[in-house]
Design a protein around this nucleic acid. Structure first.
Lengths: 136, 136
DNA sequence: TCATCGATCTGGACTTTGTCTAATTTCCGG
DNA sequence: CCGGAAATTAGACAAAGTCCAGATCGATGA
């Protein structure tokens, strides 16, 4: 699968998102890299050549992608949110000293013994974050 | 165990923290409630009667408590950090719509199948967060 | 082609959380 | 009481994110 602009447009349409120029660029930034990016980083990437997309649009668009299930939010750093183009079941490894964030495939990870949820509650997601740092 | 100011002073000393008036008040706010509080909430509690403790001191003190292992940081809400007086092994249940945060005892929870860490890395902690919301 | 209208985008002011710094206050040993 | 180190303070500052009123886009129908 190539992350062309055209493919991004289809991806957006399949998630019920009107594929505008800015949205395609933002989706392309996330999906072509397959990395965890903050809103700031997305801004920087999208506006490398000449400023094209405003801060408000970047934030609005990331929120829209999140609502539509196109990306996931990763909350590991108290100062900023990361957006993850990988929405399949997986966990995260976070290097606290460098800020590097990587995926842990969930297929072999098993979590057991969690208590029942309070009545009337449904699970929105289970986040497992392994925080590591360089030994020394 | 009563969370008297005197007991707070001993607790601080036992963690190698010089028990000043402000530190005792902040520790008391956290431990007497046994709740997850944000820096803002700590400020509000400590300064209910008359303003006694500055913002800088609240932030400095919470950071100090964290370094000394007296409290834990809980990162679940992108907009603020919570401080947790419970440092025993446990996980968290987060109600995304209300912001309510509660503990999940870790003694019955088992996590298996995590991959090996990258070479030269040590685990700082494993955070498991169950995000829930009211069904509807 | 052109006018219209809803959807989208924009700059910039604003809010909130948290950090920093230089000056003051507190506390303790001598 | 004195001097110095530790702690506290007010307030300026920084960064992430929100909000809003106005501008722009693009599809549609005449």
């Amino acid at each position: 699968m190539h992350y062309t602009r055209d493919n991004m447009a289809s991806l957006l349409r399949s998630h019920d998102i009107n594929p505008t120029h800015q949205r395609i660029e933002i989706a392309h930034a996330l999906f072509s890299r397959q990395e965890h990016l903050s809103a700031d980083q997305v801004m920087a990437i999208v506006n490398t050549r000449h400023s094209e997309t405003s801060k408000a649009t970047v934030y609005n668009t990331l929120k829209l992608f999140l609502e539509k299930g196109l990306v996931r939010e990763v909350i590991v750093d108290p100062s900023k949110v990361f957006y993850d183009p990988n929405t399949s079941a997986h966990h995260h490894l976070y290097e606290v000293d460098t800020g590097k964030l990587s995926d842990i495939d969930a297929t072999h990870v098993h979590i057991s013994g969690l208590p029942d949820l309070p009545a009337g509650m449904v699970t929105e997601g289970i986040d497992l974050i392994v925080r590591v740092r360089r030994a020394g």
